[in-house]
């Protein structure tokens, strides 16, 4: 039995080494899978990435309703939003075609991409899909401050903040006007009771 084992060992060793060598040799004849990023790629790496790749975040400021859902969803607080009231508009969510009223807009929308861990929780929280991952992944810089993405430029943010009281006033006026109109309508209803016939 032991002798059998002994010779079996030899046979196994020989055949498995032979087989292993044939496999490694066959690899010599295969094309390497290496992608020679960044300078020797046939097409940009971003185009080779899968559609749902979680790269650097991007915001469509027009779609954002400044609901701060993303800010609250982020586990590490890398999103900072200051919201301001704006004139009421309606936006269409591209994916679903849903119509959403927009009464607020971000005056400051900063994402500290240096802290971000690309978990995607913010994109899941966003009801208008304003915040999204892009396949972009190259953002190396020598200054940490450059990694804070500011989606609202400072002037724009100043303007929005400055206009806010007016917007509020307008909204209140409109509300008041609406309320007045409603009251007037009601009064008119009362004044002219339905024809007794």
């Amino acid at each position: 039995m032991a002798l059998n084992h002994y010779f079996n060992n030899i046979v196994t060793a020989t055949t498995s080494i032979f087989e292993g060598m044939s496999i490694t040799f066959s690899h010599l004849l295969r094309k390497p899978v290496t992608i020679q990023y960044p300078d020797r790629v046939e097409k940009p790496v971003q185009e080779m990435l899968p559609a749902r790749y979680r790269g650097i975040l991007d915001l469509d400021i027009n779609l954002c309703t400044a609901c701060t859902a993303c800010q609250r969803a982020c586990p590490i607080d890398c999103i900072h939003i200051d919201e301001v009231k704006v004139d009421k508009t309606y936006i269409i969510v591209p994916e679903t075609g849903r119509k959403v009223a927009k009464i607020k807009s971000p005056a400051v929308f900063n994402i500290n991409i240096a802290k971000c861990m690309y978990c995607g929780l913010c994109t899941e929280a966003c009801s208008t899909s304003a915040i999204k991952h892009t396949p972009k992944f190259e953002m190396s810089t020598d200054n940490l401050n450059n990694l804070i993405l500011r989606f609202v430029p400072p002037e724009e943010s100043e303007r929005l903040k400055a206009e806010e009281p007016e917007v509020i006033k307008r909204a209140e006026e409109r509300k008041a006007a609406e309320a007045a109109a409603r009251a007037a309508a009601k009064a008119a209803e009362k004044k002219s009771p339905p024809d007794p016939e």
């Binding site: 066959s26 094309k31 390497p32």
Partner: peptide, 14 residues
């Protein structure tokens, strides 16, 4: 065996 292994892998030969 090498050819067999190449065929099994369905890869382009380079």
């Amino acid at each position: 065996r090498v050819i067999y292994n190449l065929k099994q892998a369905h890869v382009e030969i380079h």
